[in-house]
Design a protein around this nucleic acid. Structure first.
Lengths: 334, 334
DNA sequence: TTGTACGCGTTATCAA
DNA sequence: TTGATAACGCGTACAA
């Protein structure tokens, strides 16, 4: 079933059928009705490849998601989808492994799919530095700040990770804690991890807290298991901390389990604060204290900015979205 | 940059270029080298739309995922991707809302993308009954059993939900529990929920356990919040159960939180068993007892079966994948 | 081993 | 308001 068949069936020409299908003007009401009816009856579905081919492919918006098993990115994608659905740009969602190079992938997809713009969920600055110049369409990096990257087509929407982490530490200090451990992302491969780590350091410095960068910090992957392992190591080293900052809720969950397995309790013996504000975190026992990111706002603004760049040629913007420190049950005053 | 440009640049014809690109035989080594070099230099990327259009689109495999925020489906997709990557079928992953009609969506995508076959993660039998006859390519339903659906192009790979749920209940009974509550999926909209519920009933019946279907069971959505709310309701009704079966780990997590908020403890006052075996469940405090599904095996077999149907015209199969009851810390003998 | 030429299903231009 | 027809970039007979 093609528009040719449709044309034959209705007695109109392919051009008229095409006009109706894309509801363009200059079609008689009569023709429109007849053709729509035929479409209905035949279950006709347009061939997207032919359409894209003809339209030089430039209609879709691409989303590259780094890491599949990530609750936050999951929600982000969900909101992005519903936001983009309000327009009529098709959305292409591409999931890649957390260890893959997202920029190279985007470059390839650009050539293949010729999208109007790109949304990148998660990203590594080195990858951007190395290859982003090969991307020419507007792009917004979601969840990491790209303001100090020298690209004139790259925007970003993120939480101020450094400040947020500092706030978390500040409040821990205010609760009376002085000895800390940090289970963070790998400083060298994760910018987010590095920023959050630096935020902690800022706080320590400001409050004159003694912190041994080698012994009190471990940088690992954002996973339950890595959070668990890192915490076990920290505990085994007898650093005697009373509070632990985890750079992600998933790590915090692993950390809490590790603390329990070592015969200690949260928050009685050790306070734990996470980062992200996953839905899950408020259902844990104890409820996890965490830095909650404005996921919805982040998604919505990202789409708005991208659309603005695509449609109005707006200049890139680097925005920050509010965060909220949720002090719940995994932290306590000492 | 098109193959025409490439042809001009190398002095060969488009056909030869095309042959090289698809590494077909009957090309001189010299021509191959020259063309490959030109491809490299020019950064040429094939236009997928033109390619698909020409090839009648029948090259890709489609995955329809029901629900974005679902750790199990997340892992499933990840494994499926890596399995399909071993072949050279492109994979199209499509995420739809948990409440949307996955079959209708698949029908639409079939007409648009003309995939060779479909993998459906999650599905509702009524939707299949109503519209699956519009799908003609091989399809495998992952995670739900479709053996009693009358379609000659539909396979399925799933856990024996009913049996697995029964096992979980059996072991609870063996631990001495007699008063149960069930937080399940909505019997009417979720087949998985219904099956797991029936498995529980099987066990009760077999052991002569008194179970009030109206008061001891609540069917809700698979989410933390719904698990929480349902459990609160159950508790408020003073049904005095000593064990709770949740049809999914996420519900179990909500349930545990609810139990705590009502001044009771897990497992001292109430034992809780979940279903799915999420990675997360073994990091909780207490570690969640649960029915663990063989996620990897499920994914691998699904892909194998689909490929077999596509490539060898194999007849549909309905397979069941092993499960394992993991009795951890959220359940205890009484 | 190579090249020419046609057609895939669509949109867009232009003349009617 | 309409329809014929030329692209879009590619694969592939078929001819050379």
């Amino acid at each position: 079933m093609t528009i040719k068949d449709l044309a034959k069936k209705t007695g109109y020409g392919v051009a008229t059928v095409s006009r109706v299908l894309n509801n363009q003007p200059n079609v008689s009401e009569k023709a429109r009705k007849a053709i729509l009816k035929a479409v209905e009856e035949s279950g006709f579905q347009i061939n997207d490849n032919a359409k894209q081919l003809k339209q030089k492919n430039a209609t879709s918006i691409l989303v590259v998601v780094k890491g599949t098993s990530n609750e936050m990115f999951g929600s982000l994608v969900e909101i992005i989808q519903s936001e983009v659905a309000k327009t009529d740009y098709p959305l292409i969602v591409d999931y890649i492994d957390e260890d893959d190079n997202e920029v190279l992938r985007a470059v390839r997809l650009c050539r293949e799919k010729k999208p109007l713009g790109i949304l990148m969920l998660g990203g590594n600055m080195d990858h951007f530095l190395a290859d982003f110049d090969k991307i020419e369409v507007p792009c917004v990096l979601v969840s990491s700040d790209a303001s100090n990257l020298p690209f004139k087509n790259l925007s970003s929407v993120s939480t101020d990770d450094r400040l947020a982490a500092k706030c978390a530490m500040d409040s821990l200090i205010e609760m009376g804690h002085r000895r800390f451990a940090i289970v963070g992302g790998d400083k060298d491969t994760s910018d987010t991890g590095r920023l959050r780590y630096e935020g902690c350091l800022d706080s320590c410095l400001e409050h004159g807290i003694d912190f041994d960068k080698d012994k009190d910090y471990i940088g690992v992957r954002f996973s339950y298991q890595d959070g668990y392992d890192a915490t076990c190591l920290l505990l085994r080293n007898k650093r005697n901390f009373t509070a632990l900052f985890a750079a992600a809720d998933v790590m915090a969950i692993g950390a809490i389990r590790a603390i329990n397995d070592n015969g200690l309790r949260v928050p009685e013996d050790i306070s734990v604060v996470g980062f992200d504000g996953l839905l899950l975190s408020s259902f844990l026992v104890p409820k996890l204290s965490t830095v909650e990111q404005s996921v919805r706002k982040m998604a919505v603004r990202s789409v708005e900015i991208l659309l603005d760049c695509i449609e109005n040629g707006a200049v890139p913007r680097h925005e920050t979205v509010p965060f909220a420190l949720r002090l719940r049950e995994s932290t306590k005053k000492i």
